[in-house]
Nucleic acid binder design. Structure first.
Length: 607
RNA sequence: GCCCCCAUCGUCUAGCGGUCCAGGACGCCGCCCUUUCAAGGCGGUAGCACGGGUUCGAACCCCGUUGGGGGCACCA
């Protein structure tokens, strides 16, 4: 016999299912009756499809519900026909009473926006854990939370989940904040900003968790569990079940005597949350209805044997305490949502939470292939892009495209434009591949749109980092930089490109790229270098136009070479590369001395 | 194994039952411009996974199949 069946009778129903007065707008459906169900919790099996309770029928929930129902194609308006097709048992969603009335005004379709009733202001949060490098997927999540908050006029809370002392570091923490700010994200509450719900680092909130855990235990929502993993596995095996099913809720109804006996053995219990005896479902902001059957999620550990609270516990607790209304997070957390919902119900019951938040599970960012971009993958490290000289606005723009689009025929936009247009219910549910080429193209567009002075300003650190100019540049360097900048700007994809492109202007002797030499400094090119040197040596008008005229006369007309054959060797001699800014301008800026010296040096190399 | 998510050009997406022999962007390929490379301009290539159903009509709604991904900790 299933131990749970008999034991359940022993539980005082009131211990869990208190019929508390509810806040307006909540508890719209039937009372939540976690443990009143008479059904057997057959894992993964459909069951009693009828009138589901809506355990989480907060106001906010309904708003989200409708928005996402639309995504699923269920965009029906009052008066329009609803295709009430028969659905198989177990998949039926009873939307509960009162919903139609609610939906009427809640449509957030572009055309219907603005008629939305005022609801509680949106509060989103971003809660990274400072362990090592910053992942592009993480930053994308932060960006979407930011955009959602800004778009709705709500606020963004930053909370640091540093409960893992072994992996967290102060350095990672600093770096994380720095990366967020680099991208252009700001938060309304959190570290270094403060706010009424602090502290915002979980390492400083242990007392809070202890207190909440005690409340949950006192109310019967959580209970002490003594089973070891080995014992659970043994029981599963003995029952002919897959041990992967996990904990079997065996300790749910231990008597005081049993508990005492376990303690006498020296066992330290963990605290587990009692999962409700009903399906757990929610309407995801990006995916629509998601449902987990009763029994598919076992009672989970919220506090370790040593008293340390665990992530699945502290995360919702803090969300509740901080008044978070919208949780936008990675798809990887989707399977843990039923637990969060159950926890929320319990928290609500003990007066800690006002109601569950809306959830939106953002699609994965994948790398090559279709696997989730791993933290180990160098491509996932945001620093790489930053160091290469991606513009924050360009990178943010690209990140936004990973799952969202601003319009049918546009994909270049600013952060402000994103905030203006962002609608989380229009985020795609598909995983998105990180495409470096496209990221570069988007960035290049932003780069070119920069005012020249700003381009120079942003490029200087890269030039200085390569030891090419002083920071700030000397007046002479500044003069050269300003003159060449427009030509470099339209040839750059990322800021660091200027190092290779302009380096030759800031060194005394140029390093000639061997491949370039092989191609353009052959023995037969010697005459070109000689002629160019002769033409430039006596040039009075050292200007772009003067240089152009002199070189054309000497090389094209004088030697009868085609432009390509004429200017290639000169370019390599002067810049060291086959690719450079326009030649005449480059020579002008380089000046007669260095130009002639390089032509002579290249003459030697050409043989 | 169980549970969940996903499915439109190579890639990211638009598409919300007729306006779609499917639109944009990146990439790729041509051409133009040109002292190189870019940029820019013009043009091209390429896609609704499959099978049922609902409907006068389906890329769009429903079911299934197949394929891909993720989660199943006293880690976050």
């Amino acid at each position: 016999m299933d131990p749970r069946q008999g034991l359940r009778l022993l539980l005082p129903a009131g211990a869990v299912d208190r019929d508390r007065p509810r806040r307006p707008g909540q508890g719209r459906g039937r009372p939540r009756d976690h443990l009143h169900g008479r059904r057997r919790a057959a894992p993964g099996r459909p069951h009693q499809p009828a009138a589901l309770r809506r355990p989480h029928a907060g106001l906010l929930h309904l708003a989200g519900h409708d928005a996402a129902a639309r995504r699923r194609g269920a965009h029906r308006h009052p008066g329009r026909r609803r295709p009430d097709q028969p659905r198989p048992a177990g998949r039926v969603l009873d939307r509960g009473p009162g919903l139609a009335g609610q939906r009427r005004q809640r449509c957030r379709h572009r055309l219907h926006r603005g008629r939305r009733p005022v609801t509680a202001p949106v509060r989103t949060r971003f809660c990274p854990s400072p362990t090592g490098t910053v992942h592009v997927g993480l930053l994308r999540t932060a960006l979407f939370n930011w955009a959602h908050a800004r778009h709705t006029g709500g606020s963004l809370v930053l909370r640091i989940e540093d409960t893992d002392a072994a992996r967290d570091s102060e350095e990672s923490y600093r770096h994380l904040l720095d990366s967020l700010r680099w991208l252009g994200l700001d938060w309304d509450e959190g570290p270094e900003v403060g706010g009424p719900h602090g502290p915002y680092r979980q390492s400083q909130r242990h007392d809070v968790y202890r207190e909440v855990a005690a409340k949950l235990a006192a109310a019967g929502h959580a209970y002490e569990s003594f089973s070891t993993n080995e014992e659970v596995e043994a029981r599963r095996l003995a029952a002919g079940q897959d041990p992967k099913l996990g904990y079997d809720n065996a300790d749910r109804f231990l008597t005081d005597a049993q508990r005492a006996a376990f303690r006498a053995e020296g066992r330290e219990p963990v605290l587990r949350l009692r999962m409700p005896d009903s399906d757990l479902a929610w309407t995801d902001l990006v995916r629509g209805e998601v449902r987990f059957a009763v029994g598919s999620v076992p009672d989970f550990v919220i506090v370790r044997g040593n008293g340390a609270p665990l992530y699945p516990f502290v995360n919702p607790v803090d969300d509740a305490l901080m008044g978070i209304t919208d949780v936008l997070r990675g798809e990887d957390l989707l399977p843990s949502t039923p637990r969060q919902l159950a926890l929320y119900a319990a928290l609500q019951d003990v007066g800690v939470a006002a109601g569950p938040p809306r959830f939106g599970h953002l699609p994965y960012v994948t790398g090559e292939g279709s696997k989730k971009l791993s933290k180990r993958d160098p491509q996932s490290n945001v620093d790489v892009y930053r160091e290469r000289g991606f513009l924050p606005e360009g990178f943010a723009n690209y990140l936004a495209l990973l799952g969202w689009s601003i319009a049918e025929d546009r994909d270049v936009f600013s952060m402000a434009e994103m905030a203006e247009a962002f609608d989380v219910t229009r985020v795609s549910a598909n995983p998105a591949r990180f495409d470096l080429k496209k990221a570069e193209a988007i960035n290049a567009t932003h780069l070119r749109e920069l005012p020249v002075e700003e381009f120079v300003e942003r490029a200087v650190p890269f030039l200085a980092g390569a030891g090419l100019v002083a920071d700030p540049p000397t007046p002479e360097q500044d003069r050269v930089l300003r003159a060449i900048a427009p030509l470099a700007q339209e040839r750059s994809v990322v800021l660091s490109d200027v190092v290779g492109l302009l380096g030759f202007l800031f060194v005394e002797e140029v390093q000639i790229d061997p491949a370039a030499a092989a191609k353009n400094l052959r023995p037969e090119d010697g005459e070109v270098l000689d002629a160019a040197a002769d033409a430039l040596r006596d040039l009075d008008d050292w200007s772009t136009a003067g240089i152009e005229q002199a070189l054309k006369a000497a090389l094209v007309e004088g030697l009868g070479r085609k432009p390509r054959q004429a200017f290639g060797p000169v370019r390599v001699a002067v810049s060291g590369r086959t690719v450079s800014p326009p030649l005449y301008e480059s020579i002008e800026l380089l000046g007669p001395e260095r130009t002639l010296a390089r032509l002579a040096a290249a003459r030697g190399a050409a043989g």
